[in-house]
Design a protein around this nucleic acid. Structure first.
Lengths: 219, 219
DNA sequence: GCGATAATGTGTACACTGTACACACAGTAG
DNA sequence: CTACTGTGTGTACAGTGTACACATTATCGC
């Protein structure tokens, strides 16, 4: 820790000190401002970190590797958005209400994040990758759970509350995720963009109604 | 129509004859084989058409313009996949059955196309654009309807059959679309890729069950 | 048929990207 | 102090999109 960066982009010491993190942050900014993963460029990231282009290769094997790191950060952001929404549900309510609200909180947080950070949201899901190593802290929120695990948590509460059978619980993540993810895509990229926020909220409620009706025992 | 292309990539005449179409076809191939819109490169398309790079600018204003043309072709392909599935429903069945089968056919064709042509599917939806001019023949199937309109048709049948109220019909496209589109994304890019085809089919049925349960009057 | 004009394809050029290779500097272990 | 290892630099090359001037061909008015 002996670099003096002088905080104005310039640095005086030969070594940066925390280039990996600086590149990641630059990548996140690029994805956010550029509206998606295509906007994250290795050279531009190094430029913003005040460093030569090839310095990046000491920390990321390739551009794709950097994009994956940005993707992890984006997933973590999504997880935090969901956690924030879940923190607002009343735990003292009756179990059925609690379970329902939890499930809706996941969907609400999900869509909120997509609308607030479309560039990061696209980066989180546009990029196909390794398929392994999804449950890592880089992709998790403060609770240590990634978005997928948070959804599972909400569904478990539904199961505990008797809202769904064990058979219905099986694979329910994918059913619920499909609906909410599809809505998010339609809102940010599809025919529903430029829809006023309250209309998005209304549509989100209807989608969540559908998820509940189609996934849980009607009672 | 006086070019002699000799059909082997080479051409002898100065003019190509149908370069616009040739570039579009090359673009479609690139999107298909490259797995998405990023793979469609202007220079590569001109190379495949046996023409200088800048010749493309006589027919497409920019790379983005070409990608949009590929997107239209991809949407048309999706429309045809849906039409093919809808052609299989029994029109002589009772109206309720007919309406239900129509709706399921849309979802089935949608997911089938996504799985069969992931590169084109991504191209059809990854690219945000003008928002206007969606109902054009370039994006339609043989029936002259684009995928969205085909979904509307199936939903109208549900309305006619008394399966849903007029209020439920309002905006139902977006609800149904959300669910199916989300599933398609999960299957080709998300945690569900490499899921065996029959498992995808089963999950698709559950999603369609959810759509029905959440969207239509229960009777 | 013939010449003007519009349509279409070519050539050169530039800025930008990712990344391979050899080199320079700096911190650490022996 | 000397190696060695980790990190950042410089140069280089292939690939991309696209702007500009030019060449070739098709078409239209005569």
């Amino acid at each position: 820790m002996k670099r003096d960066k002088s905080e104005h982009g310039k640095r005086r010491s030969y070594h940066h000190g925390d280039l990996k993190q600086a590149l990641l942050e630059a990548g996140v900014t690029l994805a956010r401002e550029g509206g998606g993963p295509d906007a994250v460029a290795l050279r531009e990231a190094t430029r913003r970190a005040g460093v030569a282009p090839n310095a990046a290769y000491r920390h990321y094997a390739s551009r794709h590797d950097l994009v994956q790191a940005v993707r992890s950060a984006a997933l973590a952001g999504l997880a935090r958005a969901i956690e924030q929404e879940m923190a607002g549900v009343d735990e003292t309510a009756d179990p059925v209400r609690y379970a329902r609200d939890s499930l809706r909180a996941v969907g609400t947080g999900y869509v909120k994040f997509a609308v607030a950070e479309p560039g990061l949201f696209r980066t989180a899901f546009t990029v196909p990758d390794d398929l392994q190593g999804e449950a890592v802290p880089e992709k998790a929120g403060r609770s240590g759970m990634n978005p997928f695990q948070l959804l599972g948590l909400a569904l478990d509460r539904c199961l505990d509350a008797g809202l769904m059978s064990a058979a219905q619980r099986q694979g329910a993540e994918f059913i619920a995720w499909s609906a909410v993810h599809g809505l998010a895509m339609l809102v940010i990229d599809g025919p529903l963009r430029e829809l006023p926020p309250e209309a998005v909220r209304g549509l989100g409620q209807r989608v969540l109604d559908m998820v509940e009706a189609g996934l849980t025992r009607n009672l």
